[in-house]
Design a protein around this nucleic acid. Structure first.
Lengths: 344, 344
DNA sequence: TACGTTTGCACAAATAGTTGCACAGGGTTT
DNA sequence: AAACCCTGTGCAACTATTTGTGCAAACGTA
């Protein structure tokens, strides 16, 4: 392996010049004559010379590596965020190293360790669902490696983060349902220690209060936001003596489950129960009825995270006060929540 | 930055031992006394020592990096494959570096360059749609870096690859449609220079021939397999003097488009036209009717690709004859293709 | 006490590349 | 002709880590 790969030393020997000359020639340094440069470039091509970024990075104290740590990459959301990250990062000359925590803190801790020892120059992270403490991230800080959170952030921490205005998303959704004439709106919520679910719920509550509607305990259903949870939640709601006429769910997956159960029991949406979800998953415009949802600006979130990282790099040394970028959600009204035929 | 990070040298100085002793102590080498090891470990913890994999990699001639190059990671398929790759790779001690070609050869060439200079120990790649030559991959070979293709492979090349038996998938789908009583089956196909689409089409043709049915030119519709293409394809089919009674599409996206158009024109599936797609996208079990599709064993494909890479590493030096792993598809029969109420 | 073995560690070379400094040689200036 | 500068290149040190070799000290045995 090392045998077949030509190094800068090999080039130098064959050309009868010093290693440093080759190095400078390859990087088009002004202190090297054109003729020498051309000789170097020619031989480099002939020998299939491949610069070793590891070695260069070692000397320069840089790796050009950006670490990304997400709970998983199967869904729609993180995938798009990663895409956004990749786009901007590669423009700035960075390669990304992706780790998945699989929603598991232990894994997450290990991943952080891995990224650090890979000498990443920054870490972009969205916390796992099971993360409740911050110790493993402190380590990153101590090494003065830029750390940017996105989407999922531990509350009350003074960290750099790019988040969606989840409260606003929940608020707009619920307000829309109210405007459609719904008077008993249930909420399917996720784990409340996660900022995103807490805020979506808060938006829901705010909208109800604003409309002078009561907050009823029996209209809340907390779960892990899977399709199955949605089915269970809908069963629970339909079993109520006085079932709701709308559901605002903090996830599209549980809303599609709810829809299935609703249909199975012979009801229709939006006529019997209006539905609104969150995340604008691909399938929301493919179900019947199409599901109202909230777009999370996934790609933009990834891009902003990288930009924030780049800013931190620039301002390294100076006192960098943590910044929080808040993206505005986009309510996408589809059939599942349209009870009024608002024509014209 | 380098300032704040303690190196093995710093440890050595503070402890008054040599650098090599620290190195061996950290790796629990038997030639170091327990007391020394303990002193080293203690100080390492105190100084937040972080091993530098770049330097270690340089010395050992290894990077523990595995390159992954995919057309994109937004869909369902590549995402799951990457997940499979990550799982096995991280078990084997590898980190993965992901690049997206965005279905563009130029980008793909650049990505290969990037991965090579990052000193990856192997490259797993699924070609972009626009790739028609092999030159940039030859470079990888010349450097004797294990190269494994998955899913999309240029035909007729003697390379290592993990692919799905796409022909079999197309064959089973079509055969199933025939068994359901369909007599005029159309095919929505993708770019035919890609092995996957060519083979899916071949399976379709084989099944028809086997059943003694004619291959009719007007029943083929070639496109890029988007939802919009599916709509256009369905329009074309419904405009025929004698429309088909079933469609086998090489992608789920175009089949969902076809379904939408079908409904819009007041027809029903499977009653009027039976539908079968390919890829088992998440949404296939959420539409109405649920869509028959072919599962591509995404995660298994990723896992197999890594395993193939590991095998190549082991057998490096000896003559390694290219291997091709063929995974068997899994036909998932759902409502959109069930015309017979096969009970019991 | 002499010899052999083991133990624990230091030294130095090696990995690939970058960079400050020095130096040679030529041309220009005074 | 001496002093000067500029250009192009080489030398050596430096990045963090690993690893083969070798040297002392300690220990056991004869």
């Amino acid at each position: 392996m090392a045998r077949t790969r030509a190094s800068i030393t090999d080039l130098a020997q064959q050309l009868g010049v010093s290693v440093s000359t080759v190095s400078r020639a390859l990087s088009d340094h002004p202190g090297i004559s054109d003729s020498t440069k051309k000789r170097v470039w020619k031989l480099a091509k002939e020998l299939h010379y491949q610069p070793n970024h590891l070695a260069a990075g070692l000397r320069k104290g840089r790796s050009n590596l950006l670490g990304v740590l997400v709970p998983h990459i199967d869904g729609h959301f993180f995938t798009l965020v990663v895409k956004g990250i990749e786009t901007i990062a590669s423009k700035a000359g960075y390669n990304i190293m992706i780790c998945q925590s699989n929603e598991d803190v232990t894994h997450e801790r290990k991943n952080i360790e891995t990224l650090l020892s890979a000498q990443v120059e920054g870490i972009l992270v969205s916390m796992s669902r099971t993360t409740r403490d911050f110790k493993h991230f402190e380590k990153v800080r101590k090494q003065e490696i830029p750390l940017v959170f996105f989407d999922r952030v531990l509350d009350g921490l003074d960290v750099n983060a790019v988040v969606l205005d989840d409260r606003e998303g929940g608020y707009q959704s619920t307000k829309h349902l109210i405007a459609q004439g719904c008077r008993r709106i249930a909420h399917f919520g996720g784990p409340q220690h996660l900022n995103i679910y807490k805020n979506r719920r808060q938006g829901y509550v705010d909208a109800l209060l604003e409309a002078g509607m009561p907050i009823e305990e029996e209209l809340f259903f907390y779960c892990d936001m899977t399709l199955e949870d949605g089915i269970a939640g809908m069963q629970q709601m339909l079993a109520l003596p006085h079932p709701p006429d709308a559901i605002f769910s903090a996830s599209d997956f549980s809303v599609v489950g709810a829809l299935q159960e609703l249909k199975r029991q012979g009801f229709r949406s939006p006529q019997d129960i209006a539905l609104a979800g969150f995340s604008n998953e691909t399938f929301t415009s493919l179900t019947e009825p199409m599901l109202t949802s909230v777009d999370q600006r996934c790609e933009q979130m990834g891009q902003s995270a990288v930009r924030l990282f780049l800013e931190m790099l620039e301002e390294r040394g100076s006192i960098f006060s943590p910044r929080r970028i808040v993206l505005q959600p986009d309510l996408l009204i589809r059939t599942s929540s349209q009870r009024l035929t608002t024509k014209g």
